[in-house]
Every structure is written in structure tokens, then in C-alpha cells.
Simulated scan of single mutants.
Amino acid sequence: MLVLSMLLAACVDSQSEPADPAPAYQPELIIYCENGVVAPIYEISQFFEARYNCKVTIQNGNVRNLTSMIHLSNKGDLFIPDTNYGFSLLRHLQPDIIRDSLYIGTNRLVYIVPKSNPEKFDGQIESVSQRQFAVIIANPETSSLGLKTKEILKNRAIYAEVINNIMTLSVDSRGLIRSIDNGEATLAIDWLSSYYYNSNRERVDTIHFLPPIPESDIYASVLNTSEKPGLAQTFLAVLSSPVAVDIFKAHGIKKKRSGLIITSLSSTQNDTINEDNRIR
């Protein structure tokens, strides 16, 4: 009887305990982000999650894979490629998918060399074709970085020479610094933002282009596939906030014009931007 009484009391106590509360609903944003800008976007997303009590999922990779993912899934809230080429590629798959877009900063290409530049690379574009350098560049068929690199080298009529002198193409920016650091290559062309990622500054050095080359503007866009367009627009606005500007700057991406929201992007691959920040 004593044992039975104790068991009954335990049952009553366990039934009287309140159940664990159901987890609070958190809206989710899905952001497709090319590799050259993923590090600052990740930091900004952490700030955004805490501020707006939501979840941000980042899909990152090269622009070819990202645009295919968006097209096939028909899901997602924002798209942030390294250059405007990404928008042209995505629009070719889905003409009306791009909504409001925001200029968030300017990135630039740099040469990546081993620490202390042991081969004394001089920064001249023509020197990239010299056989003394083991060159690696990104693939122009898969990444914005590769396409931009190809344009620069073709403008100097040395792209074919460089291609003939390299062992392989990197599918995107992620393999470039790793190849320099482990001794597989001695010269690469990459975004400055890649140099500021994690511990890369301790592993390699950068050399500026001589003569200087045009920088690349970065835009973020809300997608028509967004299931949370209001929250997506809020994230777009946060990208031009002082917090975001400081994070971008710490990753080598500087804001050089006002962050105006524009309602469309040119469908041509060679997009250009005039002084009042509208794409023409």
C-alpha cells in the first residue's frame, strides 16, 4: 500500500508539471550569395537574426550554381552576386524574377602572391603571361570572378597566353588562395574581399594592378519568389545601415555612392552605372 501511494503521488506530481512551451515561430529568409561577398553577409545576417527574431539561411557558391538553384527551386528571398553578371544570368532563366535592388559597395580585383612576394611579381598585367609564374584563375564559365578576370586579360590581349600557361581553373574564388598557400601556384587573381576572409591575410599577400583597373559594384536584390517580401525588404535596408557599412569595409568592400534602392537592373551582361546610381 505504501509503494502504491508513492506511485500515485508521483503520477499526480508529473501530471501537474506544466509542459514545455512550444518553440516560438521564427520567419526565415533564404539568401543566395556568391563567394566574394558571403563573409560580410554572414556577419550581417547574425546581427539581423538577433534584431528581428528570425532565421537567415545562406546558400553560397559560384554564380552558375546559385542561379540554377533559384530557378529549379523557385524559392528564395534575396540574391547577392559578386557582379551584375549574376543578374543577367538569372534573368535569362527567369525574366521577371528580380525586384528591388540596392547598391551595397564596391569590390576590386587584386593579385594574390605568396607571403613577401618571393618571385617579385611587379603588378603589371602583361607579366601575368610570363611562364615563370604558376598562375591560377577562376573559371569564367562558372563564376563572376572568372568572367571579370577574363575580361581584364582579354583587354590586354593576353588571355590566351595565360590559359595556355595554367594547369587548371578554379571553379570559384575559394580554391585560389588555398592554391597559393599550399604551393600549387604562385600567382592568382581574386577579389580583395577574399584576402580579408578569416586568416587569409596571414597566409598570402596582395599586389595592386598596374595600371589600375575598374572596380566592381555589388548589388543585392529581392526576388519575386520571396515568401516574406516585407522581411526581405527590411534586410535590404539593413545592408545600407552604418552597422553593415562597417562590416563591408572590414572585408575590403567600400561604399562609394549612396545606397539607393532601384526597381530594375539592365538585362545586358555589360551593365554600367551612371552618376545618379541608376543602371542604364
Rank of each mutant, 00 (worst) to 15 (best):
S179V: 07
M167N: 14
L147F: 07
G252T: 14
S170Y: 07
T206C: 00
S173F: 06
V243L: 05
S173H: 07
S179E: 11
E215V: 11
L147Q: 08
M167A: 15
V162T: 14
P229Y: 07
E184T: 12
G259R: 02
E184W: 09
E215P: 05
V204N: 04
N270L: 10
I189R: 01
Y219R: 09
N182P: 04
I177F: 01
S240C: 13
A157G: 15
P211I: 13
I189D: 01
P214S: 15
I207C: 02
P212I: 12
R156S: 11
E215Y: 12
I163G: 00
S170R: 07
K150V: 07
A185C: 08
S199K: 14
S258P: 12
I207A: 03
L187D: 08
V204Q: 02
K254G: 06
E215F: 09
I247A: 00
E161Y: 09
R174S: 03
E202M: 11
A220T: 12
S194C: 09
V222N: 01
K228D: 13
D172I: 01
T186G: 00
Y219V: 13
S199V: 15
I218D: 04
I262S: 03
S216D: 03
R257W: 10
S221T: 08
I218V: 10
T268Q: 08
P211V: 12
L147M: 11
G259K: 02
K150D: 12
G259W: 01
T268H: 05
S170G: 09
E202W: 05
